[in-house]
Measured scan of single mutants.
Amino acid sequence: MDVFMKGLSKAKEGVVAAAEKTKQGVAEAAGKTKEGVLYVGSKTKEGVVHGVATVAEKTKEQVTNVGGAVVTGVTAVAQKTVEGAGSIAAATGFVKKDQLGKNEEGAPQEGILEDMPVDPDNEAYEMPSEEGYQDYEPEA
């Protein structure tokens, strides 16, 4: 019985440690998101679009440190934060509304985080759909 109880105690310690790591990862992701939003706020009209992409990228980098179902929630929060940063930029006159959601080359930025393969159960990952990809044929 002692062996059984000791095993359960060790398992509990492992769960607590994993929860603490997840909590730490979420806190880091939130900190990076805040950094990115402050970065966007300090940019001029020309830099705002690039700044919004930076927020998304920093958040995406930190999301990889967070495991399990938390990833889905962090990704949703990050996307809403990026959308909010863009709205703030438009409201303050840093950028025109028609410039939001495009990178410096004018290509749409939507789907940055949505296409990231995420499995809350950590069982399997699927690649994003290939609808947006084109076949590449090298020139002879």
Score class of each variant (00 low, 15 high):
residue 1 M to Y: 01
residue 2 D to T: 04
residue 2 D to R: 02
residue 2 D to Y: 10
residue 2 D to W: 04
residue 3 V to F: 08
residue 4 F to G: 00
residue 5 M to N: 02
residue 5 M to D: 00
residue 7 G to E: 02
residue 7 G to N: 08
residue 8 L to F: 04
residue 8 L to A: 00
residue 9 S to R: 08
residue 10 K to G: 00
residue 10 K to Q: 02
residue 11 A to H: 00
residue 12 K to T: 14
residue 13 E to A: 07
residue 13 E to D: 03
residue 13 E to F: 07
residue 14 G to Q: 12
residue 15 V to Y: 08
residue 17 A to Y: 03
residue 17 A to S: 09
residue 19 A to D: 00
residue 21 K to N: 03
residue 23 K to F: 15
residue 23 K to W: 15
residue 24 Q to W: 09
residue 25 G to E: 06
residue 26 V to L: 15
residue 26 V to T: 01
residue 27 A to R: 08
residue 27 A to S: 08
residue 28 E to V: 14
residue 28 E to I: 10
residue 28 E to T: 10
residue 31 G to H: 04
residue 31 G to A: 03
residue 31 G to E: 04
residue 31 G to D: 06
residue 32 K to D: 00
residue 33 T to Q: 00
residue 34 K to A: 08
residue 34 K to E: 00
residue 35 E to R: 12
residue 35 E to I: 13
residue 35 E to F: 10
residue 36 G to R: 10
residue 36 G to F: 10
residue 37 V to W: 14
residue 38 L to D: 01
residue 39 Y to Q: 04
residue 40 V to G: 00
residue 41 G to M: 09
residue 41 G to T: 13
residue 42 S to Y: 15
residue 42 S to W: 11
residue 43 K to V: 12
residue 44 T to L: 12
residue 44 T to I: 14
residue 45 K to H: 02
residue 45 K to A: 04
residue 49 V to T: 08
residue 49 V to A: 08
residue 49 V to H: 10
residue 49 V to W: 13
residue 50 H to T: 15
residue 50 H to N: 08
residue 51 G to V: 12
residue 51 G to L: 11
residue 52 V to A: 05
residue 53 A to S: 09
residue 54 T to G: 07
residue 55 V to I: 15
residue 56 A to K: 10
residue 58 K to H: 09
residue 58 K to L: 12
residue 58 K to Y: 10
residue 60 K to R: 09
residue 61 E to C: 07
residue 62 Q to P: 02
residue 62 Q to N: 12
residue 64 T to C: 13
residue 64 T to S: 11
residue 64 T to F: 10
residue 64 T to I: 13
residue 64 T to K: 07
residue 65 N to I: 12
residue 66 V to Q: 01
residue 68 G to Q: 04
residue 68 G to A: 05
residue 69 A to C: 09
residue 70 V to R: 04
residue 70 V to D: 01
residue 70 V to M: 08
residue 70 V to W: 11
residue 71 V to W: 12
residue 71 V to D: 01
residue 72 T to E: 09
residue 72 T to G: 07
residue 73 G to L: 12
residue 74 V to Y: 11
residue 76 A to H: 10
residue 76 A to L: 14
residue 76 A to I: 09
residue 77 V to K: 03
residue 78 A to P: 02
residue 78 A to V: 11
residue 78 A to S: 05
residue 79 Q to P: 02
residue 79 Q to N: 07
residue 80 K to N: 04
residue 80 K to C: 04
residue 82 V to W: 06
residue 83 E to R: 13
residue 83 E to H: 08
residue 84 G to R: 12
residue 84 G to A: 13
residue 85 A to G: 04
residue 85 A to V: 15
residue 86 G to Q: 12
residue 86 G to A: 14
residue 86 G to W: 13
residue 86 G to N: 06
residue 86 G to D: 03
residue 86 G to V: 12
residue 87 S to R: 04
residue 87 S to V: 07
residue 87 S to P: 04
residue 87 S to N: 08
residue 87 S to F: 06
residue 88 I to G: 02
residue 89 A to K: 05
residue 89 A to S: 05
residue 90 A to P: 02
residue 92 T to N: 06
residue 92 T to H: 03
residue 94 F to P: 03
residue 94 F to D: 02
residue 96 K to S: 05
residue 97 K to V: 10
residue 98 D to L: 15
residue 98 D to H: 10
residue 99 Q to M: 14
residue 103 N to A: 02
residue 103 N to F: 10
residue 103 N to G: 07
residue 104 E to G: 09
residue 105 E to G: 12
residue 105 E to D: 07
residue 105 E to L: 10
residue 106 G to P: 10
residue 106 G to W: 09
residue 108 P to I: 11
residue 109 Q to N: 00
residue 110 E to R: 13
residue 111 G to M: 15
residue 111 G to Y: 12
residue 112 I to S: 14
residue 112 I to N: 05
residue 115 D to R: 05
residue 115 D to A: 13
residue 117 P to Y: 07
residue 119 D to C: 11
residue 119 D to G: 12
residue 119 D to Q: 15
residue 121 D to T: 11
residue 121 D to P: 06
residue 123 E to F: 10
residue 124 A to K: 14
residue 124 A to R: 10
residue 124 A to V: 11
residue 125 Y to S: 07
residue 126 E to P: 13
residue 126 E to R: 07
residue 127 M to Q: 10
residue 127 M to V: 07
residue 128 P to N: 08
residue 128 P to H: 04
residue 129 S to G: 10
residue 129 S to N: 05
residue 130 E to M: 09
residue 132 G to S: 04
residue 133 Y to V: 05
residue 133 Y to D: 13
residue 135 D to F: 07
residue 135 D to A: 04
residue 135 D to E: 09
residue 136 Y to C: 08
residue 137 E to R: 11
residue 137 E to K: 03
residue 138 P to N: 05
residue 139 E to M: 08
residue 139 E to Y: 13
residue 140 A to D: 10
residue 140 A to G: 12
residue 140 A to I: 04
